[in-house]
Deep mutational scan, measured.
Amino acid sequence: RDEDEKEKIKEALKRGNEDKAKEIAKRANVSPEEYERLRKEAE
């Protein structure tokens, strides 16, 4: 379940949809550090 959320965040970031990614991260309680890591992976 947690991994699904992280995949959704990465997908949103790949599409350049940072607002959606942040919204998912907030809902999934993803830490800022984890969010940054996902953002780097998505580049």
Rank of each mutant, 00 (worst) to 15 (best):
34 E>F: 00
32 P>S: 11
18 E>C: 08
37 R>Q: 13
20 K>V: 14
29 N>K: 10
20 K>H: 11
7 E>H: 12
34 E>R: 00
10 K>S: 03
22 K>V: 09
10 K>G: 00
28 A>M: 07
1 R>Q: 14
40 K>D: 11
16 G>Q: 05
41 E>K: 05
14 K>E: 07
15 R>T: 14
4 D>R: 12
32 P>C: 07
21 A>C: 04
30 V>R: 00
7 E>G: 10
42 A>S: 08
41 E>T: 06
32 P>E: 15
36 E>M: 02
14 K>M: 10
5 E>H: 15
27 R>T: 09
6 K>Y: 15
10 K>Q: 00
26 K>P: 02
43 E>C: 09
38 L>H: 01
25 A>F: 00
13 L>S: 03
6 K>V: 11
1 R>A: 15
26 K>D: 11
40 K>E: 15
32 P>W: 11
40 K>T: 10
42 A>W: 06
34 E>L: 00
14 K>N: 07
2 D>S: 12
19 D>W: 04
7 E>P: 05
22 K>S: 07
36 E>W: 00
41 E>D: 08
40 K>M: 12
13 L>V: 07
12 A>N: 08
24 I>Y: 00
32 P>N: 12
13 L>K: 02
35 Y>I: 06
11 E>C: 07
4 D>N: 12
5 E>Y: 15
43 E>P: 04
38 L>R: 00
37 R>Y: 07
27 R>G: 09
34 E>I: 03
40 K>H: 13
3 E>Q: 14
41 E>R: 05
36 E>N: 04
13 L>N: 03
41 E>W: 05
43 E>S: 09
20 K>Q: 14
7 E>V: 12
22 K>Y: 05
8 K>F: 06
24 I>Q: 03
42 A>G: 05
21 A>K: 00
27 R>A: 13
42 A>L: 09
30 V>H: 01
22 K>W: 06
32 P>T: 11
39 R>M: 10
33 E>R: 03
30 V>M: 11
1 R>V: 15
38 L>P: 00
16 G>T: 01
12 A>E: 13
11 E>Y: 00
6 K>A: 09
33 E>S: 06
26 K>T: 11
23 E>I: 08
43 E>V: 11
9 I>P: 02
31 S>N: 08
7 E>K: 13
12 A>M: 09
34 E>H: 00
12 A>H: 13
9 I>A: 03
25 A>P: 01
32 P>R: 10
20 K>L: 15
16 G>D: 05
37 R>D: 11
7 E>F: 09
9 I>N: 03
37 R>N: 11
25 A>D: 01
12 A>Y: 06
15 R>L: 14
27 R>S: 10
22 K>Q: 12
22 K>P: 02
43 E>K: 09
8 K>P: 02
16 G>I: 01
38 L>M: 08
2 D>N: 13
17 N>I: 05
43 E>H: 10
34 E>P: 00
19 D>M: 11
2 D>V: 15
10 K>R: 06
40 K>W: 09
9 I>F: 02
11 E>M: 04
2 D>M: 14
20 K>G: 09
25 A>R: 03
13 L>C: 04
40 K>G: 10
39 R>K: 14
31 S>W: 04
8 K>S: 12
8 K>R: 11
3 E>C: 10
40 K>N: 11
25 A>M: 05
27 R>C: 06
3 E>A: 13
3 E>N: 13
6 K>T: 10
30 V>S: 02
9 I>R: 00
17 N>H: 13
34 E>M: 01
39 R>C: 07
28 A>D: 05
9 I>H: 01
8 K>T: 08
27 R>W: 00
5 E>Q: 11
30 V>T: 06
36 E>V: 00
9 I>D: 02
39 R>G: 06
8 K>H: 08
33 E>V: 04
1 R>L: 15
21 A>M: 01
36 E>Q: 04
22 K>I: 12
15 R>E: 15
14 K>A: 11
29 N>C: 05
11 E>V: 04
8 K>I: 07
40 K>R: 12
8 K>N: 09
35 Y>Q: 03
6 K>E: 08
3 E>F: 12
8 K>L: 11
25 A>I: 02
11 E>W: 00
19 D>N: 11
15 R>I: 12
2 D>A: 12
29 N>G: 15
41 E>V: 06
31 S>A: 08
19 D>A: 14
43 E>Y: 12
42 A>M: 10
12 A>W: 05
1 R>W: 14
21 A>Q: 01
5 E>R: 07
30 V>P: 00
27 R>N: 11
28 A>Y: 05
42 A>H: 04
19 D>P: 09
42 A>K: 02
3 E>P: 11
13 L>I: 14
23 E>L: 04
33 E>N: 06
12 A>S: 08
40 K>F: 08
37 R>A: 10
15 R>A: 15
21 A>V: 02
23 E>P: 01
18 E>I: 14
33 E>A: 06
38 L>T: 02
14 K>S: 09
7 E>R: 13
23 E>W: 00
15 R>D: 15
39 R>I: 10
25 A>W: 00
31 S>L: 08
18 E>N: 08
4 D>V: 11
35 Y>T: 03
1 R>D: 15
29 N>T: 05
34 E>N: 01
11 E>R: 05
10 K>F: 05
4 D>Q: 11
5 E>T: 15
31 S>G: 12
31 S>H: 06
43 E>R: 10
23 E>H: 06
3 E>H: 13
10 K>W: 01
38 L>K: 00
29 N>F: 06
31 S>F: 04
9 I>E: 02
40 K>V: 13
39 R>N: 06
10 K>N: 03
36 E>G: 00
34 E>T: 00
4 D>M: 12
21 A>Y: 01
27 R>I: 10
2 D>H: 14
3 E>D: 13
17 N>W: 13
17 N>T: 06
30 V>E: 01
34 E>V: 01
4 D>L: 12
35 Y>N: 03
17 N>Y: 12
5 E>F: 15
1 R>G: 14
33 E>F: 01
35 Y>P: 00
43 E>I: 12
39 R>W: 07
7 E>I: 14
23 E>M: 04
26 K>Q: 13
36 E>H: 02
12 A>K: 03
12 A>R: 02
1 R>N: 15
25 A>H: 02
43 E>W: 11
32 P>D: 15
31 S>D: 10
30 V>F: 07
3 E>I: 12
9 I>C: 04
16 G>M: 04
24 I>C: 04
40 K>Y: 08
38 L>W: 02
16 G>W: 01
12 A>T: 04
38 L>S: 01
5 E>L: 15
28 A>G: 08
7 E>M: 13
11 E>K: 05
25 A>V: 05
12 A>Q: 11
23 E>R: 07
39 R>S: 10
43 E>L: 13
26 K>L: 09
34 E>Y: 00
21 A>E: 01
42 A>E: 04
23 E>Y: 00
15 R>M: 15
30 V>A: 03
6 K>S: 09
24 I>M: 05
38 L>Q: 01
35 Y>V: 07
13 L>P: 03
23 E>K: 07
30 V>G: 01
39 R>Q: 10
1 R>I: 15
14 K>F: 02
15 R>Q: 15
35 Y>F: 15
17 N>G: 05
10 K>M: 05
32 P>V: 10
29 N>L: 07
21 A>L: 02
14 K>C: 07
23 E>Q: 10
34 E>K: 00
3 E>G: 12
42 A>N: 06
20 K>D: 12
5 E>N: 10
37 R>H: 08
24 I>F: 00
22 K>F: 07
23 E>N: 07
21 A>D: 01
37 R>L: 07
1 R>P: 15
33 E>W: 00
15 R>S: 15
7 E>T: 13
15 R>P: 03
16 G>E: 04
16 G>H: 07
37 R>P: 00
38 L>I: 13
17 N>M: 13
23 E>V: 07
41 E>N: 05
20 K>Y: 14
27 R>D: 08
24 I>L: 07
18 E>G: 07
34 E>C: 04
25 A>S: 06
31 S>E: 08
4 D>C: 10
24 I>N: 02
18 E>H: 12
6 K>P: 06
11 E>G: 07
32 P>K: 11
16 G>K: 05
14 K>I: 13
14 K>H: 09
41 E>I: 08
10 K>H: 02
24 I>E: 04
28 A>Q: 08
27 R>V: 09
41 E>G: 05
4 D>W: 12
35 Y>H: 02
42 A>P: 01
18 E>F: 10
2 D>T: 13
29 N>E: 08
3 E>S: 12
8 K>V: 06
23 E>C: 07
27 R>M: 07
6 K>Q: 08
36 E>F: 00
29 N>M: 09
9 I>G: 02
31 S>M: 06
6 K>G: 09
26 K>F: 04
1 R>M: 14
33 E>K: 04
36 E>R: 00
27 R>Q: 12
37 R>V: 07
19 D>E: 14
15 R>W: 09
19 D>F: 05
7 E>Y: 07
26 K>V: 12
11 E>S: 07
39 R>A: 13
24 I>D: 03
14 K>W: 01
24 I>T: 04
18 E>T: 10
34 E>D: 11
